[in-house]
Design a protein around this nucleic acid. Structure first.
Lengths: 102, 102
DNA sequence: ACGCTATTTCCATAAACATAGAAATAAGAA
DNA sequence: TTCTTATTTCTATGTTTATGGAAATAGCGT
């Protein structure tokens, strides 16, 4: 799948909110087992519905996915997708930058 | 200067718009001499004021700066700042990722 | 079926964002 | 000073986003 401007912009936009960036960062560190919504709620101390909205935003940008286990929903980072976004940015920063290359 | 969540989120938010990401990408490739606003306008074919607003957004996130030469304003990427943003993201993706490390 | 826990969706509202034409400003030349 | 080019700022408007309580849904146990 080719990464497009629209695609990447969408991901960056969703990450471009303090709470969502915090959530995402926390999820990245939780690894592939992810983290339960309840656990996130406990750590962040924000209203359930606000958290749900933010989680939904990250999912809409395919940055995370959710896995249910009984009544518990886990949020898991889509690492490949995240790598794509970073790669897109790196492709930008490595061309004609003021570093030794230029 | 330490990169904070707020800081990074701000940068990501500003990059999280198709046109702004396109502008930024174009500027990165133009190198340290930057690019004139007029040139950007020619390439992007969007109204002057819309372009100005977008440029202002990128500047407000310290992703670019402007340099005047007579009546011409050049936009130049703040590469250090950009590197910081990328580093922040990479710090996230290299810890407990599903790669061989875990 | 009922009750409980976990979480999302609905609904409403205020704030923020994106857009673009018009007006204003900045700089240079005559 | 006037005129011209380059660009920003102002103004207005419509759209989108962020927030959070209430209602609804999902899953499980009794």
């Amino acid at each position: 799948m080719t990464t497009t401007i629209e695609d990447t912009a969408k991901a960056l936009k969703e990450l471009g909110h303090p709470i969502r960036l915090t959530i995402f960062k926390r999820l990245v560190k939780s690894g592939i087992q992810g983290l339960a919504v309840g656990q996130l709620q406990k750590e962040l101390q924000i209203p359930n519905s606000t958290l749900s909205h933010h989680i939904s935003s990250l999912a809409s940008a395919s940055l995370i996915r959710q896995r249910r286990e009984g009544t518990t929903l886990y949020c898991v980072v889509e690492y490949d997708r995240f790598m794509q976004v970073i790669s897109f940015l790196q492709d930008e920063c490595c061309i004609e930058s003021p570093s030794p290359i230029s």
